[in-house]
Design a protein around this nucleic acid. Structure first.
Lengths: 148, 148
DNA sequence: TTAAACCCTAGAGTTAGGTCCAAAGTCAAC
DNA sequence: GTTGACTTTGGACCTAACTCTAGGGTTTAA
């Protein structure tokens, strides 16, 4: 009852990247298929699938392949003295993840302001560009000035 | 009472990028200084400063320079029939911004799981790698299994 | 038993986003 | 009136992350 293994083409289709990309990740130590067939075909396991899932996900949120490599390499062992290092590294990543989420939310608001203000909004052409929308936001700070 | 203009070095220091980068953005149509001195020096206005701020912010959250170029080009005019287009474009960006925020939060949780579980946590070496942490998360779905 | 569809490797090429350099002009201060 | 810190241009160079090509082996369905 060994699990079903995927060949490179199947995995590629499944996760929507090219076969070249998967080979590229392998060359750079991010994803080594757990097995090869007699003919030398790469055979990917379920775990490999999860791994590539993480890689792509991390990539989408802005980690570089190098960072992802490091993340995947993180491992805390029982007798750990590297614990501190791991925690430091992870916490740093957490920090700038937080910062970027904040920034994204800010841009999200800006885009929303733009989208709302422009099409059939009450004010016809007041907030008309990204930068005006940004300004509109900035001006309405903690205490929204326009309402005073 | 014309506003204070910045030369390229001052702006560069202010926003923490190289002068080359600013010139690069100019060459690619993202940021043209509002003025040049007689000698041909670039002079950046307050508005230019805001613009570069937006560019860098958008870049940090994962927009490409091309996308940023398009975002900056967005403009809704009074007699607008392009309104639909703008809205479509912006809403699409909003969508994948949302998706990426979700993904970031997921990774954030994973990292937190890792950080918590590893250093002095109750369970010593159970969740020890990113992928195990991911799994731990997945297993505790809507109804956290471990607690049942 | 052969054609179509798959896989392999090695290495060259591409794109985005800078970064570096050389040769030369400008400006403030001493 | 020259030194030193600034600026200009054009073009070469760089890194990350693919993407493509050539030349060849494998598997499977007809």
């Amino acid at each position: 009852m060994s699990e079903k293994k995927l060949r490179i083409g199947e995995l590629a289709r499944l996760v929507q990247v090219s076969q070249d990309t998967l080979r590229f990740y392998e060359k750079h130590g991010l994803l080594t298929p757990s097995l090869r067939s007699q003919a030398g075909y790469r055979l990917y396991s379920q775990a490999d699938l999860e791994r590539v899932g993480f890689i792509l996900s991390a990539k989408r949120v802005g980690f570089t392949l190098n960072e992802i490599h490091d993340l995947l390499g993180l491992e805390v062992t029982k007798d750990d003295k590297s614990c501190e290092d791991v925690k430091r590294f992870v916490d740093e990543k957490l920090d700038n993840l937080n910062q970027r989420i904040g920034e994204m939310q800010r841009i999200q608001k800006t885009l929303k302001t733009l989208s709302d203000a422009c099409c059939g909004g009450a004010e016809p052409a007041t907030h008309c560009t990204i930068l005006e929308a940004l300004n509109a936001q900035a001006e309405s700070g903690p205490i929204p000035r326009r309402l005073l």
